[in-house]
């Protein structure tokens, strides 16, 4: 893995903002940025491990553990709040067995669903909005969408 990570990120070393590109590349390839990648990235970019960890932890997008099979990002921002995002979020969280507010790593016990907050998808006239595996979703009905997510959690593909 270490060798392939090094090969994957080397093309970005001289680019403007190459470290962010490299982190995106690692995550796109492996689904997350494993701890074993940190010293490799540090070595390739000639930075300290602390600097690499600092950048990874700063950005919401970078995961340090694998996500579920499906990733759902639910918009939590004002325009979606105005049309029921809080209700939608609560329904889905309780359907998946998550208590309380977002913890930062809400993956269901089956490992099939990861639920994350997102602050605006630019679908502010079409809320409540979400993104399901990278596909934008708008005007969500709390009951219908919760049912859809439950079905995914129970193994239905859609």
């Amino acid at each position: 893995m270490q060798t392939s990570i090094a090969a994957l990120i080397k093309p970005f070393v001289c680019d403007t903002g190459g470290l962010l590109k490299a982190l995106h590349a690692v995550q796109n390839t492996y689904g997350y940025i494993d701890a074993v990648a940190v010293p490799v990235i540090a070595d390739v970019f000639n930075l300290s491990k602390a600097e690499i960890k600092g950048v990874i932890s700063f950005y919401e997008d970078f995961r340090r553990s694998p996500a579920g099979h499906h990733v759902i990002k639910i918009c939590q921002a004002e325009a979606c709040q105005a049309v029921g995002a809080r209700d939608l979020t609560e329904k889905i969280r309780s359907a998946l067995g998550f208590g309380g507010p977002f913890s930062g790593c809400d993956t269901s016990v089956t490992g099939r669903i990861t639920l994350e907050p997102v602050y605006c998808l630019g679908l502010c006239a079409s809320g409540p909005a979400a993104m399901l595996d990278g596909v934008p979703r708008g005007r969500l009905n709390s009951e219908d969408f919760t049912r859809e997510i439950k079905a995914l959690e129970n193994g239905a593909e859609g």
């Binding site: 918009c75 921002a77 004002e78 325009a79 605006c120 630019g122 679908l123 502010c124 006239a125």
Partner: peptide, 12 residues
């Protein structure tokens, strides 16, 4: 980096 909720002109 159009992050403000309620805005989508840049995206559009």
């Amino acid at each position: 980096d159009e992050g403000d909720s309620g805005t989508f002109a840049d995206r559009m």
